Amino acid sequence: MTETDADSRPRYHHGDLHAALLAAGEAELAEAGIEAFSLRSVARRAGVSHAAPAHHFGDVQGLLSALAAEGFRLFLAAQMARQKQAADDPRSQMLAAGLGYVDFALARPALFRLMFSSDRPVFETDPLCSTSEAAFRHLEGGVAALGSKDPLDIAAIWATAHGIADLLASGRLKPLMALGPQARDAAVAEILRRVLPAPSP
């Protein structure tokens, strides 16, 4: 159900407005960047009143925090989607999670950088705190399944997966970018395999 603004843009009144604002926010972030990001621009893109984003998120930082929280939910889902296609053993599962990490960064580079490279989101508040912690616990659990709780093993796997994802999303890792999707996946998996903890004897 909609009503029309003076400028003929529709105002939406339905249960999906929160999701619609997040989708508009992600599109605005990807197109305009974080410096030009504003509640007004998101409202315009979503076709709602200028007050709607503030009503749902409070301010720009609140909306960016909500976007980052949704990003971590999608980030974890991308990893789990890859893991569902992989063998059940811990090493295959960890490599699949790394491929999902790359999938997410390539599909949503602006959101990826908001989550990992921006100081605008407030990580101390929920739902961002809980979704980001869930993503890290998934990594910890995967490393534990390999037989290690060493923080350095966790750091090595995380740094490697993140580095590959960020370089590919930035268009910097040209040797891998030149490969087709299957060959790129194989190369990423091989790089990740080199930093996995050695199997227990």
Rank of each mutant, 00 (worst) to 15 (best):
R184I: 02
P10A: 06
A24K: 06
S170D: 15
Q182I: 11
R45M: 08
F37Y: 06
L196Q: 00
M80F: 09
A86M: 05
A105I: 04
D185Y: 05
A186T: 03
A77F: 02
G33S: 13
L63S: 01
R91W: 11
A66M: 12
P109Q: 05
S200T: 15
D7P: 09
A187Y: 02
S8H: 09
A32N: 15
A32C: 15
Y12T: 10
D16M: 09
L74E: 10
Y12R: 14
F136Y: 06
T2S: 14
S132H: 01
G62F: 10
P127F: 03
E3N: 12
R120L: 06
R45N: 09
R9I: 03
I34C: 01
A97D: 01
L63T: 02
S132D: 02
R82E: 08
P121K: 00
A165F: 02
V48A: 15
Q93G: 08
P127R: 04
T4Q: 15
L192T: 02
P199F: 10
L196D: 00
P109C: 07
G147K: 10
F72R: 00
F123R: 15
P175E: 14
A78L: 04
H55C: 08
L39Q: 12
V48N: 15
K84G: 11
L17Q: 11
P127S: 09
G142T: 04
L67G: 05
A43Q: 07
I154V: 15
D88P: 06
P127H: 04
H13C: 08
R120I: 02
A145D: 13
S148T: 05
A87S: 11
L74P: 03
L64E: 00
G33W: 03
H13G: 05
S117W: 07
G141R: 03
E133D: 12
R137S: 07
S130I: 04
S92G: 11
A189C: 12
A145L: 13
V42C: 13
I157A: 02
R91H: 12
G33V: 04
F116W: 13
A187P: 01
S8T: 10
A107L: 15
D153E: 13
L76F: 03
A155F: 13
D5T: 10
L95Y: 05
A87K: 09
A178T: 04
G147L: 12
M94R: 06
A66Q: 15
L192W: 12
L168I: 02
L106P: 01
L67N: 07
A156V: 06
A51D: 02
T125W: 13
H13V: 07
A144Y: 04
Y12N: 11
D150N: 08
K84P: 01
C129I: 11
M177W: 14
A6V: 02
Y101P: 00
L111Q: 00
S41T: 12
A155R: 11
H13F: 07
S118M: 02
A54D: 00
F75V: 05
A27C: 08
E133C: 08
A144W: 04
P90S: 09
L76P: 03
A145Q: 12
P109V: 05
D166H: 06
